[in-house]
Amino acid sequence: MADVSTTDPAGGARKLSVASWFMVACLVALAVIPVAIYAGGNAFWLDIATRLVVLSIAAVSLNLILGFGGMVSFGHAAYLGIGAYCVGIPTYHALFGEFELIATNSGIFHVILAVIVSAVFALITGAICLRTKGVYFIMITMAFGQMIFYLFVSLETYGADDGLVITSRSEIPGIDMDNPLAFYFLCYGSLLAVIYLVHRIVNSRFGMVIQGAKGNEDRMRSLGYSTYVYRLAAYVIAGAICGYAGALLGNFTSFISPDMMDWAASGELMFMVILGGTSMVFGPVIGAALFLLLEQLLSAFTVHWHLPFGIMLILTVLFVKGGISGLLARMGRSNG
């Protein structure tokens, strides 16, 4: 599969100045601005920022397989849903009884459950998806995502398509999850950790292999790599990270429904990744920020904001190659 944007780690080293300063500036702004506005008495932007940070984690995880691994997964929102239900279902049983085994409000348990269930789902579906290539892969990931969607729609106990209200948030020792600021910093810290983790993975031996497999799988096999197991491992890691983001999202919204893992939600995640650019680990964060800003701006003008959004999406594909970080990289190169 030809790549949308050339992954360009060596060029990345050279453009370090522009792009990484930009990243640091963005991260500092994320730490300061929403908090400052919140301290000034306006809770709205902290809310948006929390959503941004959580969706960024999901988008960064998607970029690990999509941007660096060349695996175009159109079912990534399923992991957000799985993660969220891994918070919702145990707290539901903690309140209403039954299934004592998982009935708990413990946040540590929720997170572990979310990560494990997501990883297992990624392992099973990935083992099948990764036997196929190209367009098959896209459609199959989409179909498996939709399978999980319909599964939760059919579960009457957990609200079916009406969704499930999380009555009490996860309990994590030392963190007051009901305090918006504390919760924001938990999410923000998680984002930093995930960016660092993915950065390490991408530049490790493992990361070199999945990037090589993206460029030319036959070549990798003839060099002696069993590309399948490496790609599967990347697929599982990305799923697990996104499951973690899902657990945060469930705590954030306090209400979960199958809609959060609809294929439109997967499409939005993909859009964030592509808009932000796939060649940098940090790219999807920019994409997520632009997506949420667009959503806010456009929906302030019209309830039909999907129309201009759709048009922009088409124009982005037709005319902007490599996303915003691709533009940054080009700027960096022409500057020096």
Binding site: I138, G267, I274, H306, F309, I311, L313, I314, V317
Partner: peptide, 19 residues
């Protein structure tokens, strides 16, 4: 273009059509 571009652009089309 590659399949990823197909998918994204036609996803945009869906949003336009629905609205």
């Amino acid at each position: 273009r590659d399949h990823l571009d197909h998918v994204l652009a036609t996803f945009g089309l869906i949003l336009c059509f629905d609205t």
